[in-house]
Write a protein that binds this DNA or RNA. Structure first.
Lengths: 167, 167
DNA sequence: ATATCTGCAAATCATTTGCGAAACC
DNA sequence: GGTTTCGCAAATGATTTGCAGATAT
C-alpha cells in the first residue's frame, strides 16, 4: 500500500488529471505545463506560459509549449482566446462558460457569466436557421470617470501597452 | 458648367466619399481600394482585397493594400474583424452596428443586428463598473440537421477549409 | 521495444517597414 | 515644389515543423 502523503510534488494537478483522462502520454514537460496552467487564474499567452514553466524547470522549450497548448486545445481542455494584441491567450475549459470584459486602458481582463446572453444567442441562431455551436462575446470597457484618457479608438487597436491581465 | 454625366468612371464611391470627408489624400490606389470596398458586400481579407483590386487595375501592390486598410481603420472607416483562420477581415463601418454568425461547416458569414445584446452588454459592463466602449459578438453555428458533419471542435479551429464568405 | 515527444534551428505566414522613385495638393 | 504615398524587397513577430535524439507506455 502506498503510504505517501499527497505532497505538492506527487499530486497530479487539475489539468494533468484532465490530460490523463484524455489518454495523453504524460511527459515531464506536459506535466509541467499542466501544473502551470492549473496554478494560473488569468489568461496567459504562450510566451508567458513558457516563462512560468521555465521558472519551475528549465528543461523545456517554447516549441513544446506551442505544441502542448495546441494539443490541449484539440482535446478541449483549453480554449484559445483572442483579446487583441497579436498573441493567442489560453483559458482552461473546465472553468465553465464565461465571457470577458477587457479594460481598454489597462488591458486587464475580467470574467463574468451571464446565461441571458447565451439564451439570446441561441434564439438568434435558431431564427437564422442554425444550431448554436459556440459563442464568442467580449466587452471592451473603460472604468467609470476617474482620470479619463484622451485617446480612444487608438488605445484599443495597439493593445501593446497595457498587456497582462491578472484574474 | 460641368456637363459630365455621373458614369461609373467619375462618380466617387461610397467609401471614397468617406475618405475625402476625413481629409485623406486620394491617390489612384486609394481610390481603387475604396471602390473595391464599396462594391463588396462581404468581409474580405487583405489578400482578397488585393486580388479584386488587381483585377481592376494592376498598378497596386499588396503593401499598399495593407497600409490603406490600416489607415482606414484608424479613421474609423473600416472595422477589423477576426473570424478565426489567421487573417484579419474588413468590414465598412458605415453599415451600422451588426454582428456575425459564422457557419462552422462552410465558413460563410451571416450578418444580423440585435439591439438587445447591446443593451444587455451595457448593463453588464455597468454592473462591473465600466462604460461600454465596444462589443464583440460572434455566433458559431451549424445549419439545422441536413447532412451533418462528424467533426466538431476540430472543424472550427482549422477554419482554413471553408474560407470565403459572401453574405 | 517502439511509437511518440522534445529541442533546436530553419521555415512559414501574415503583416510591417526602410528606401529611393513617383504622385498629389 | 515639397510632402506624402508607392512599390519593392527585406525585416518582423507569432507560430509551425523537419530531423535526430530522448522518453513514456
Amino acid at each position: 500500500m502506498d503510504k505517501r502523503a499527497p505532497t505538492d510534488r506527487d499530486s497530479a494537478s487539475r489539468i494533468e488529471r484532465l490530460c490523463i483522462q484524455h489518454g495523453l502520454k504524460m511527459t515531464g514537460q506536459r506535466r509541467l505545463i499542466a501544473r502551470v496552467l492549473s496554478e494560473s487564474a488569468d489568461h496567459p499567452d504562450v510566451e508567458e506560459l513558457y516563462r512560468r514553466a521555465v521558472a519551475l524547470d528549465d528543461r523545456i522549450s517554447i516549441a513544446t509549449v506551442y505544441r502542448t497548448v495546441r494539443l490541449l486545445e484539440e482535446k478541449g481542455i483549453l480554449e484559445r482566446r483572442d483579446f487583441g494584441g497579436g498573441r493567442a491567450r489560453y483559458d482552461p475549459a473546465d472553468r465553465g462558460h464565461h465571457y470577458h470584459l477587457i479594460d481598454v486602458d489597462t488591458g486587464k481582463v475580467i470574467e463574468f457569466a451571464d446565461p441571458r446572453h447565451e439564451a439570446l444567442a441561441r434564439e438568434i441562431a435558431a431564427r437564422l436557421g442554425f444550431a448554436l455551436v459556440d459563442l464568442r462575446l467580449e466587452l471592451f470597457g473603460r472604468r467609470f470617470p476617474e482620470g479619463a484618457v484622451a485617446e480612444d479608438a487608438q488605445a484599443r487597436r495597439s493593445n501593446g501597452g497595457g498587456r497582462q491581465d491578472e484574474a
